[in-house]
Design a protein around this nucleic acid. Structure first.
Length: 520
RNA sequence: GGCCCGUUCGUCUAGGGGUUAGGACGGCAGAUUUUCAUUCUGUUAACAGGGGUUCGAUUCCCCUACGGGCUACCA
């Protein structure tokens, strides 16, 4: 592998990249990552980021997926400069709406001898393949076999004219050069060489009047002045074909540079992550919730799972890219600055749920209470805004997602109805009720209901009664929160307020004595 | 099967002819804490194998193995 190819990025040309999904289903996180890398690359170089919808296969169209993708990208916090939803100088950006454009280029290729009409039925081609299979051989429509098929290379010009006049169904195939080394310079992988013998005469134009991906892709990238094609590794095998197409169309000088990204792999078994993996893997595979319009099957998304968009983006970016420093938390701006294709790794990455949660937790810790309150609806009960902010500060270090606060801090929002059984069993002693009663009196007498003050008077009481924290605190915590663990107890007490504390102390004693009775 | 791409701790990765092979997540242990969490400290664990090239290879080359992708008138 020649590493020198990694370094060269032609900066004399305006950087224009595209994300070109096919609306055959919701884009999973792998697709979002591809879009993100395209975006980062574009913005790093002051370029444009374009959305083009590759809907040349009408049979696989799934309604709603185009909107889904745009929503997902927007949720992530970025957007396209040109595309189906925002327009642009190269509109339309949907290939089905560009249908009229492609035929002329197919014709041009025929005229220049780089393509030909194929009149073979699917059945005829399949038969050839099956026959070869039985002999344990490969068959492909190529230089070695096209002579035995029904096409404009084997038919006389008159016969071809006749067929076309009769409206006989035809496809247009690319005529791959018979004997040539085709070189693809990949920005991530270096120089990749494939012999043209390995390539088949791909259909460029289908009998339904639509181009195939290969033709439409090259034509649109050329017309839209795309400078870099950054896409998944699954396209690497067809990259030589694309290089040949650029050349045959006479566009070799403005051919985009290629970068083939490593794939996102299934964390269990093997294989690339698929949109069919849905929720099977124990983590969301999609950015947003998705319900399949045909099957009704539901798949969960990162957004609804509680991930922050910036955390999601950060963790996604690190699946296959690393700036080479020890910094791991990156804002979008920082990512744009730090991004480079040379730092994209070559091997596939498996998703780690633990790491994903860690990223979100890090972002949660960095957010202010105000911001968190604007993102999550807490059951405020009768807590004031200021009190809620305190609650959030206390709960934050104990949570991964903002919404965790609702369950983790449930006792802030309602008096406990249950008391942690283990703690009751281990910590509720014969003198516990008395301690709670004593402290209730202390609380009652407190001139101002502040954590520091309450703690001071509590410590005085402990000293007087010769009690340790370990004996005195758990019963108090139990009656106030029902839990065996949590934030500093007097902070909780302050937020709850005198009235509420006294109420909970009273009912707590009754309730706990009831359940711990059998033991005594 | 054919072609192409890949292979550093369990995972994400840094590194690169001479390093104690670095970091992060996770795990484990400890410190702090009334408790839990946070935080901090320590610790665990990796260059797929075999040949070259070289004074010296984890790093460069080849082979093998393994993994992955592609192999449609899908994208």
């Amino acid at each position: 592998m020649l590493q020198c190819f990694n370094i060269f990025v032609d900066m004399t040309r305006k950087v224009r990249v595209r994300y070109a999904p096919s609306p055959t289903g919701p884009q999973h996180i792998g697709g979002i990552r591809t879009a993100l890398y395209n975006y980062l690359f574009a913005k790093k170089h002051g370029g444009d980021f374009i959305l083009r919808i590759e809907d040349t296969d009408q049979g696989r169209y799934v309604p709603g997926t185009e909107e889904y993708l745009i929503d997902a990208i927007k949720w992530c916090g970025f957007d396209f400069d040109e595309g189906v939803h925002v327009g642009g100088p190269h509109a339309p950006y949907r290939q089905s709406e560009r249908k009229a454009i492609y035929k002329q280029y197919a014709d041009q290729l025929i005229a220049s001898g780089n393509a030909y009409y194929s009149f073979d039925s699917n059945e005829a081609v399949d038969a050839k393949r099956k026959e070869a299979e039985q002999n344990k051989k490969n068959w492909q429509y190529d230089a070695s076999t096209r002579g035995e098929m029904v096409n404009s290379l084997t038919l006389s010009p008159a016969e071809v004219d006749q067929k076309l006049k009769e409206d006989a169904p035809f496809a247009i195939r690319f005529k791959i050069p018979a004997d040539e080394e085709v070189v693809v310079n990949d920005l991530i992988r270096g120089r990749v060489v494939v012999h043209s013998k390995q390539l088949d005469d791909k259909v460029l134009f289908k009998s339904d009047g639509m181009p195939t991906y290969h033709l439409a892709n090259i034509v649109d990238d050329h017309l839209m002045e795309i400078s870099h094609v950054i896409r998944g590794e699954e396209w690497l095998p067809s990259a030589p074909l694309h290089v040949l197409l650029y050349r045959a169309l006479g566009w070799e000088n403005t051919m985009p540079e290629f970068a083939h990204l490593p794939l996102l792999l299934k964390p269990d078994g093997n294989g690339k992550l698929s949109k069919r993996d849905g929720d099977r893997l124990g983590f969301p595979v999609f950015p947003l919730n998705w319900t399949d319009p045909k099957t009704g099957e539901f798949s969960s998304g990162y957004k609804e799972a509680g991930y922050f968009p910036d955390a999601f983006l950060n963790l996604l970016a690190f699946l296959g890219w690393n700036p080479g420093t020890e910094q791991e938390i990156f804002s979008m701006e920082e990512m744009i600055q730090a991004f480079s294709l040379e730092k994209v790794s070559k091997s596939g990455a498996k998703f780690s749920l633990d790491k994903a949660r860690w990223f979100n937790q890090q972002y949660l810790q960095k957010k202010s209470a105000k911001e968190i309150l604007s993102l999550v609806q807490l059951p405020a009960n009768n807590l004031s805004e200021a009190q809620l902010e305190k609650v959030v500060e206390l709960l934050k270090p104990r949570c991964v997602f903002a919404k965790d606060m609702i369950s983790v801090g449930a006792y802030f929002f309602a008096a406990p109805t249950e008391y942690d059984a283990k703690t009751v069993e281990k910590k509720w002693k014969d003198n516990s009720a008395q301690i709670v009663k004593d402290v209730a009196e202390l609380f009652e007498a407190a001139p101002v209901f502040k954590a520091a003050l309450l703690e001071t008077s509590f410590k005085g009481y402990m000293e007087e009664k010769q009690l340790g924290f370990g004996a005195a605190m758990p019963p108090l915590r139990l009656v106030l929160s029902g839990a065996g663990e949590g934030p500093h107890l007097f902070d909780i007490a302050e937020i709850l307020g005198k009235e509420e504390c006294l109420k909970r102390m009273k009912s707590g004693i009754e309730n706990i004595e009831k359940i711990s009775l059998p033991k005594n």
